[in-house]
Design a protein around this nucleic acid. Structure first.
Lengths: 278, 278
DNA sequence: CTTGACTTTGACGCAGCGTCAAACCGGCAT
DNA sequence: ATGCCGGTTTGACGCTGCGTCAAAGTCAAG
């Protein structure tokens, strides 16, 4: 019979652990002195303790180990538990590898640029949303900016504020032509089938923006210069972290557009649908 | 200005999180209504929140993120933090891979044998210990068993109980001859240079058992039959989990030997020094 | 004015112990 | 017998980053 300290030393565990296992009923001492409350362990309890430690090593929780030791678990059930554990482990392994890549790209960035860059690329998922929009093809940036402004202003006037949500520009230039193939419109609070005619012959048509599970996003001031550097940043991030672009990029105007041309004060969220690179 | 729920929805976080970040001072709401205590967030706080989320993704703790956002951290310090994180991550990746192998070998074992095997292989580290022992070469198992018994009995008589610790047999058969090359003796509570003569011309000489960092161990009843199966079990375990045997195996008798020949009632811990397989 | 949806603060929970604190106990030296 | 030092007991809090109630107050629509 050993007192708790000796037994702990033999088994390479802490006394606190033994007391805790006692409390959980996983490993009661062979004897407890009723006078003093001292716990006395027999060397014959070592196999049981080792079973506990081995099962813990496999990643099982102490709660799960209890029934196992009492042989209340069939091999099939244990197999199922372990298979689940394996799946969880594989999942977390993949996640940690992703994180490792994140960290390494961030370290490389510090080394390259000698400073701290932007931290704000975030992966999120977005739900499908009704979208009242205009498809158009623009020759150059200036034309695109004018068009966005037109849609923004006329849309703001003609769509009820309670229905209108945010201005969104989807870049659909598949084969990057010279031309910009854009879809410009407003997301809506709820579905609506009404098309809306705006200035001249332009027409906003009801449609839907599809949901995207993994969307790499970055929030930036909407000045054109900053927008350009944001695209660079998010592109590097996507590449460095083992993703690839998977669909059309969106620019979400988080604030209603006001002020002078150029959207200087606007706040824009750039969104790239991504998936793990092949 | 958004109330907490809307802002949470936009940023894909929970309201609880926002309140928590407020409490930590990481992200105070743009305004708090002094009447009602309602928190109001500006969309312009989204970049800061995204910074927090991105840094969290890198594995930094919220405590570490605070100073970062206040620009109280130089790039070099950040680099150091991330490098440390990377090392930790790589370490935990290796550990999880090891666990994954453990689990897979356990599943395979269930599938092969249709049942639950022994759970009790445990890795521990053992310290160096003074060792009073006899080196001998035995032709067969019977001779070895007799020799162990002789050392056990004579040693128990001739070494003071306060000095004597446990009977240990080290198997030194390097090139597995027919013969068993054993070292049989007692570990001691403290160093001693006294050699001890036991029955006949046999002599226990003072020496030392070296420390071993990673020792795969299993505790078993000392019956010879059970001992055999234990060796099989531990061998399979070592192989399945990507280790290799690295030195001489030890058998530690956890209880003083009593009773009839064969050590039927004894409790033995088998120890194999191991290292990651090449 | 009544709902029903939101929000506030406050508290507990978690997983597996580590780490005090205050009070006892055991064996050795005197 | 007596001190003393080291081990032991129970009990409580800490940790990480929130999730999840609970009770009470707020806001906006009908």
């Amino acid at each position: 019979m050993f007192r708790i300290g000796e037994f702990a030393q033999i088994a390479q565990v802490s006394g606190r652990q033994l007391r805790f296992y006692d409390q959980l009923g996983l490993l009661r001492p062979a004897r407890i002195d009723p006078q003093t409350g001292y716990r006395y362990y027999s060397i014959r309890q070592l196999p049981r303790l080792n079973s506990i430690l081995a099962l813990k090593e496999l990643g099982l929780s102490l709660e799960q180990i209890g029934p196992l030791l009492k042989n209340e678990i069939s091999p099939a059930e244990l197999r199922a538990m372990l298979t689940m554990k394996r799946a969880q482990l594989e999942q977390s392994l993949r996640e940690e590898e992703t994180r490792l890549r994140h960290i390494e790209s961030r370290i490389a960035q510090i080394d390259r640029r000698g400073g701290i860059g932007d931290y704000d690329v975030v992966v999120k998922s977005v739900a499908a949303t009704p979208f009242l929009s205009l498809r158009c093809s623009c020759e150059n940036m200036d034309e695109a900016v004018r068009m966005v402004r037109t849609v923004a202003e006329d849309g703001s006037r003609q769509i009820r504020p309670a229905l209108r949500d945010k201005l969104i520009v989807v870049a659909r230039n598949d084969h990057d032509d010279e031309k910009l193939d854009l879809e410009i419109g407003f997301s809506l609070m709820r579905a609506s089938n009404a098309n809306i005619r705006i200035s001249g012959d332009l027409m906003l048509r009801a449609g839907e923006l599809p949901a995207v599970d993994t969307m790499a996003t970055i929030v930036r001031p909407g000045t054109n210069a900053a927008s350009h550097s944001s695209f660079g940043a998010i592109g590097m991030w996507i590449e460095a972290n083992g993703f690839e672009v998977f669909g059309p990029c969106r620019e979400v105007f988080l604030e209603p557009i006001t002020g002078p041309p150029g959207f200087e004060g606007a706040l824009v969220e750039i969104q790239f649908p991504v998936r793990a690179a092949a």
